[in-house]
C-alpha cells in the first residue's frame, strides 16, 4: 500500500510546495530586499522594510484594522449567539436552519458586498426611502465610512460565528437546563449562569474565525470604505500595485500573517480542544 500512497501524495506535494510554500518563501526573501528603481526588488539585504511599519502612518492603519475587526467580531458574537441558540433548539429542522445560515456564505462575497453598496449609497434604497418619508432632507452619508465597513464585515462573516456556536450549544446537555429550572432559575438566569459559561469554547472559536478574516479583509474596506478606510489588506494591495514597493508590501504581508498565526497560537493554547 505504501507505493500507491507515495504516488498519490506526489501531486499534492507539488501543489502545496510549488504554489504555496515557495511563493511564501519568495515573499520572505523580498521583504528583506530593497525596492528597485523600476519597482522591482534589488539588493542590498535590509531590515528597513520591517522598521518602516513603525512609522505612525502605518501604525494608524494597523490600529484601525485591529479595532474595526474587534468591533465587527463583537457584533457577530452579539448577533450570532441568539441565532445559534435558536438553531440548536429547532429540533428536527436544525439542519435546515443551519444551512439557511450558511447558504449566503457560499454565494459570492463580492455580490454580497455590492448589495450593501446598492442599499447604502446616496441614491440607494435606504436614502430614497428616508427622503420619500421626509425623515431626512439630504441623503445621509451611509456609505464610505468605518460604519459601512463594519456592517459589511459583520454581514460577511456572521456564518463563521454561528457555526462553532451551534456546534457547542447543540452538545449542551438538556438535563443541565432542566436542573437549573428545577432549582428555580428563570430562563434569563439560566442563560447567563449555565448556557453562556458552558459555550465559552464555541465563542472563542467563533471570535477567532471572524476576527482572522476581518483582520486581513481587503474587499470590504475597499468597496464599502471607498478608499477612506484603509486596512492592512488595502495597504498590502496598494504596495504591490499602485505604489510598486514590493519589499515593503512583502514585509506588511508577513506581519499580517504572523499576527494571524500568533493570535491562533495564543487562543488555541488557552482552549485545549478548539477547532
Amino acid at each position: 500500500m505504501q507505493r500507491l500512497r507515495a504516488w498519490f501524495l506526489a501531486p499534492g506535494y507539488l501543489v502545496t510546495v510549488g504554489l504555496f510554500a515557495v511563493p511564501m518563501l519568495i515573499v520572505c526573501a523580498y521583504s528583506l530586499l530593497s525596492r528597485g528603481p523600476y519597482g522591482g526588488v534589488t539588493t542590498p539585504w535590509t531590515l528597513e522594510n520591517y522598521l518602516r511599519v513603525f512609522d505612525p502612518l502605518y501604525l494608524t492603519i494597523l490600529w484601525r484594522s485591529v479595532w474595526i475587526s474587534a468591533v465587527s467580531t463583537a457584533f457577530c458574537l452579539l448577533l450570532g449567539f441568539p441565532l445559534a441558540l435558536f438553531v440548536a433548539r429547532a429540533g428536527k429542522r436544525r439542519t435546515l436552519f443551519l444551512n439557511l445560515v450558511m447558504l449566503p456564505f457560499w454565494t459570492s462575497f463580492l455580490i454580497r458586498t455590492y448589495a450593501w453598496m446598492f442599499l447604502l449609497r446616496d441614491t440607494g434604497l435606504i436614502n430614497t426611502v428616508l427622503q420619500a418619508l421626509h425623515l431626512t432632507g439630504a441623503p445621509l452619508p451611509l456609505l464610505f465610512n468605518n460604519g459601512a465597513v463594519i456592517l459589511g464585515l459583520v454581514y460577511g462573516y456572521l456564518p463563521f460565528m454561528v457555526l462553532p456556536l451551534y456546534a457547542t450549544l447543540e452538545k449542551l446537555d438538556p438535563a443541565l437546563l432542566d436542573a437549573a429550572q428545577d432549582l428555580g432559575a428563570s430562563p434569563w438566569v439560566t442563560l447567563w449562569t449555565v448556557i453562556v459559561p458552558l459555550s465559552k469554547t464555541g465563542m472563542m472559536a467563533g471570535c477567532l474565525l471572524v476576527f482572522i478574516p476581518c483582520l486581513g479583509a481587503y474587499l470590504t474596506p475597499d468597496l464599502l470604505g471607498g478608499g477612506k478606510t484603509v486596512m492592512i489588506g488595502n495597504l498590502v494591495q496598494n504596495q504591490f500595485t499602485t505604489a510598486r514597493d514590493w519589499p515593503f508590501g512583502s514585509a506588511v504581508s508577513l506581519l499580517l500573517l504572523i499576527l494571524v498565526l500568533g493570535l491562533l497560537r495564543l487562543v488555541a493554547r488557552k482552549e485545549e480542544n478548539l477547532l
Binding site: 499534492g12 502545496t16 515573499v27 504581508s253
Partner: peptide, 29 residues
C-alpha cells in the same frame, strides 16, 4: 491511509492565510 503532517499543515495554513497575502505571494512567484 496515513497522516502527512506537512501537507495537512500547509493546507490549514493556506486556509488561514488572508486572501490578499496569498494573492501577492502568488503574484511575486
Amino acid at each position: 491511509k496515513r497522516k502527512s503532517s506537512f501537507i495537512t499543515n500547509s493546507l490549514y495554513l493556506s486556509l488561514l492565510t488572508p486572501e490578499i497575502v496569498t494573492g501577492v505571494s502568488l503574484l511575486a512567484f
